[in-house]
Design a protein around this nucleic acid. Structure first.
Lengths: 212, 212
DNA sequence: TAGATTGTTAATCGATTAACAATC
DNA sequence: TAGATTGTTAATCGATTAACAATC
C-alpha cells in the first residue's frame, strides 16, 4: 500500500544512519540484509526500520530481506544525495579548520565551496584548495554556488548575526556548532552540534551511579 | 508535590540547554525569568519547561517566575556540574586537536586529562598543557584521574576497538565523533556527534523545497 | 487587591512495538 | 513445500500541550 503521510522528522533523521550502515555492508561485500540484521548494527528495532521505510515505499522481499545496494540507492535518492550539495562554512578557527579538512563531508556529497572568517589575519589563508574570504564575499559566493546549506563555527556571541546574514543571502539550512539557540524564519532549518550539552546530559547519569 | 518517577532522557537532554540559557541571562544581568521568557529564548514551550523542572522539584514563585541564579544552581547540581569531570580524549587528528583546544569544555566543568593517539609521530607532542600519549597509557591515566567520561575522535575503522578499551579501563560514558554505531555494555552511555548525518537529514527537506 | 505565573493534572498527540497475513 | 521476512495494522507506550487551581 502507498503512504501519503509526510514522514515524521524522527524518521528523516534516522535515514542517514540506515544509509551509512548499508554503505558499510556494501564495502564488506554483503548483498542482502534483513531488517533484523540491520537493526542490530545500529541499535534500532527491526519493526522500526520496516515502519520507517514504509513511509517511502516497498523496498524489500518477503522471506529474503533487502538488497543492500538497491535499498542504499533508494535512501540516497530520498535524501537527495544523488548530487553534491554546496556548503559554506563560516568561522575558521581550529574547529572550522577541522571541518574544512574533514574528507568525510566531501565523500558524502557535501562540498564546501566557501570559507569565511571575520579575522583579517585569516582572510587570504589557504585551507586545502579553498581560500578564506571576508564576510563581504558571503553573499556573492552563496549566489554563485547556489548554496542553500551553511555551517556556523563562530563564537556564540556572533552566531546569531552570522545566521541572519546567511539567511538573508539565501541559505535554507544551517548546521550550528555555536552554543546558542538561533532565531530564524520558520522556513529555515537549523540543527545543532552541541558536544558540551551532550556531555552534560551524561554527567547527570554518572553523578547518580556509584562513583568509585 | 513530590515526583518520584525517573525523569525521561529527553528531559535530561534539555536540562543543559536550560542551564546554558540561564548562564547567558546571568551574564546579561537578568535576575528573574518566567518559563515563557526562557522558552522563547530556546524555542521550547513554557509548559514544557515547567513540566521538565517539576521532575526535580519546585524552583519558581507563582506570579514571579524563576530566580535565574538559583535555578541555574539547581540545574547544575542536578546535572552533577558542581565539580569538574575528568575526560580522556582519544584521537588527536585535526578534530581531536580542535576539541582539545576548545576552552568551552574546560569552562563548563569538563577537564581533559589525557590525550591519546595511535600515531607514534604524534605521541609526545604537546597540545596546550597536555602531552599526547600512547594507547598503552590509557588504562593508567583513566585510573589515575578516575575518568569515567571519554571522547572518541578516531577514524571509524578503529572506533569500536577504542570503545572496547575505554570500557575495559572503566569509562562509563562515551561521546563518539566517529561515524559508526558503537556496541557497548548496557550500563555504558554512548552519545553521538554526527554532523554528516545531520546535514543529510536536512538535504531531505532542501531536495523537496523548490530549488532556485 | 489584581495580575501574573507557577506546578500539576488531564487531554492530546505522536512514536514505537507487537503481531500477523501476505508472499518470496 | 517450509521457513523466513516483509509491509501494515492495531495496541501500547511515552511525550507534549492545554488548562487551571493555587498562590506570590
Amino acid at each position: 500500500m502507498e503512504r501519503l503521510d509526510a514522514p515524521p522528522d524522527v524518521v528523516i533523521r534516522r535515514l542517514p544512519l540506515y544509509a551509512r550502515s548499508l554503505r558499510y555492508l556494501l564495502e564488506e561485500g554483503v548483498h542482502s540484509v534483513s531488517s533484523q540484521e540491520l537493526g542490530e548494527r545500529i541499535n534500532v528495532t527491526a519493526a522500526q526500520i520496516r515502519k520507517d521505510l514504509s513511509y517511502f515505499g516497498e523496498f524489500g522481499k518477503q522471506g529474503i530481506g533487502y538488497d543492500v545496494e538497491k535499498l542504499l540507492n533508494h535512501i540516497e535518492r530520498i535524501l537527495g544525495l544523488t548530487h553534491k550539495w554546496p556548503v559554506v562554512l563560516v568561522g575558521v578557527g581550529s574547529l572550522g579548520q577541522a571541518i574544512a579538512r574533514y574528507e568525510g563531508f566531501h565523500s558524502q556529497g557535501l562540498q564546501i565551496v566557501g570559507l569565511f572568517d571575520a579575522d583579517p589575519a585569516k582572510v587570504g589563508q589557504q585551507i586545502g584548495d579553498l581560500t578564506i574570504q571576508d564576510f563581504s564575499q558571503l553573499r556573492a559566493v552563496i549566489r554563485e554556488h547556489h548554496a542553500r546549506l551553511a555551517i556556523i563555527a563562530v563564537p556564540a556571541t556572533v552566531a546569531q548575526s552570522v545566521a541572519d546574514q546567511l539567511v538573508e543571502a539565501g541559505v535554507r539550512a544551517i548546521l550550528n556548532y555555536a552554543p546558542v539557540v538561533l532565531q530564524t524564519p520558520e522556513d529555515v532549518w537549523v540543527r545543532y552540534i552541541d558536544p558540551v550539552a551532550v556531555l552534560h546530559s551524561m554527567t547527570y547519569y554518572l553523578a547518580r551511579e556509584g562513583g568509585e
